[in-house]
Design a protein around this nucleic acid. Structure first.
Lengths: 197, 197, 197, 197
DNA sequence: GATGAATGAGATTTCATTCAT
DNA sequence: AATGAATGAAATCTCATTCAT
């Protein structure tokens, strides 16, 4: 049967959820707002999703799943570590241009994601991939061996997320040029450091 | 009159709020839980604080106020930029040892802080101070001039916050030794970079 | 047209309803549960029955209709009143062995039956038939004339229903032997009484 | 503190619940109806009772608790078994005159009581007491030894409940005179039986 | 006949806040 | 200052019923 239509409806509702959650945050959004935004009846949200929290969980899961894939693709790439890191930075910061509402939701509800539980695996895997990129770079002698690779991965991700946060709350400039510059700066900073030679 | 007692009661309630919010988050905590934790009557919370949100706001304001002071103190210090950055790292990461519950609340509710409005000033000032440290370092030739100082400040703070997040959600080791190591690693990473020479 | 198939479908759904209602009660059962149990589509239930309540009503009506017939058959029988009463007891208690799920539904939803309205007629007729058995017995001098016949009918039915209730809720033993014994005991009790001579 | 007022409020709400549930049944009654009937705010019902079901449960528990006490008091009485049975009949049927709304609720929601769980103990104890009355009568030679005492207790209770049901649904006359007559008839029926000598 | 997606009214429950004592 | 009973506005979720295919 019309599974295509069904998938579209699901997608439609999920999209609406992102839009609505991005507007005023998950908690202050009502399920009825999501339904209205999607242009469907109240109960249909519950036909496709078990609960309001499920909506958020699915948003997280999908995003991290795609993030994981993207990072792994970068990992498989045969380029210098620095370029790989730049690739990751581009993925994360690029999201702001591709789907700012999604970024708004993710940034605003970060704290909820570890509690959401299930998709934590995907997050952990993405961090692990990032860490492997660092380790590989160290093995190839491109990156310093003395630095804890796991911490380095966290620092990179933290830096990127903070920049997204700055954009979301309009405390950092986020025009296309700024995005490019931020990407380059972060990479430069993390590879060569702030110190003058 | 017994203003001391009053202040103590206020403090008692605020402490209880931190403990309770740290446990399961701001939203799932009830005002009655805070009252119970503080060992006072329900209504007394409203005698000292205007609303539940006021509690959170005050926690943020106080913390960022102290953070601002601490960063400014580091700023006034006459030591190399790298040591100043290390000082800031110590302040931020040290909070985990001084008051883990407070860190839990801050990390979990980060996204709320910019919405809270009023104390944003304090946050902005703290970031500005951090930025000035970078600028000063660049002026003194200790730090590279090519790097955007504001972005550098954000990257540093993001890195530190991410590490706190890792500790809060138990995804990074956080024993005293780990804390020290994290502090050194972050500073080393941000000053000299990941790249091998 | 395939009226046979139609009747079978109706029957199938009704059977499923009995099974489902017996499990957790009418109110907590969903129409979708009935459909699933019957192995038919959701909407088909509404093709054959006007509403969820109609299902219950039909269960009651059919049952009481058969009950009425059975009691009237006993009535037509040319045996002593005591044997007629025993016949009624056998019909009512025997249902537990024939169709325990049906008994479960009836016992659990007794209170609903008088509210259901339409099938009350059938219930009333069954009680009337039972009463006539008593009256006839009194007229033939087999039963005491001094006892209010209507009340006697109610007492008998109440006793039987309570025993079914005990079985349904597993508070009285209900193995085949127990059922036989219960039947005999009730009849003995109601005809000859508890009193020692 | 005003514990008296509190208890009164609880009582007030419970009373209102009985009135409302008696009107149209538990399921169709809304908590808001109970609040309105009691003349209190919506939330106060939840201040005193955990849930709508708790209201019903407490009604059952209290009633069966009082029933148990009353039956045990009859049990302690030093009168012939027949008079003790009459005493029990008076208690049960008398409820109709004392508190018809309560009886309406009990009769209508009987099926729910075994599911309610906790107060089942009280019901079981009441039945046990009734059974002991029969056993004692048999030991004293006042009642026939051949009859299963447990079944006799169930039959008695079933008969009484059925009569209450008849009154509740207006299918048996329930004027004061009728009540007295019913009481006598049931006792006479169960002790001496329907059979003519 | 058969399907199951779509609808939306309605009920329970929570809890921040108020206020009389 | 201190108490906690009282208030009532929301918000989530359920599910009987409808209807287009």
């Amino acid at each position: 049967m019309a599974t295509d239509t069904q998938r579209e409806k699901r997608r439609l509702i999920l999209r609406a959820a992102i839009t609505v959650f991005a507007r005023t945050g998950y908690h202050t959004s009502r399920v009825s707002d999501v339904a209205k935004e999607a242009g469907v009846a109240y109960g249909l949200v519950y036909h496709y999703f078990g609960s309001k929290e499920d909506l958020l969980e699915e948003i997280f899961r999908r995003t991290w799943s795609r993030m994981l894939e993207a990072v792994e693709e970068v990992e498989r790439t045969d380029v210098p570590a620095r370029d790989q890191l730049a690739g990751v930075a581009r993925i994360v910061l690029g999201a702001w241009q591709v789907d700012p509402d999604l970024v708004r939701v993710l940034v605003r509800e970060v704290a909820r994601s570890p509690q959401l539980g299930r998709e934590v695996d995907e997050i952990a895997h993405a961090f692990a991939a990032l860490e492997r990129i660092v380790v590989r770079g160290q093995e190839r002698g491109e990156l310093r061996a003395g630095i804890d690779s796991r911490l380095a991965a966290w620092v990179l991700y933290g830096a990127l997320e903070e920049i997204l946060t700055g954009w979301v709350f309009d405390r950092l400039a986020s025009a296309p040029d700024d995005v490019d510059r931020a990407e380059q700066t972060v990479v430069e900073l993390l590879t060569n450091g702030l110190a003058a030679d």
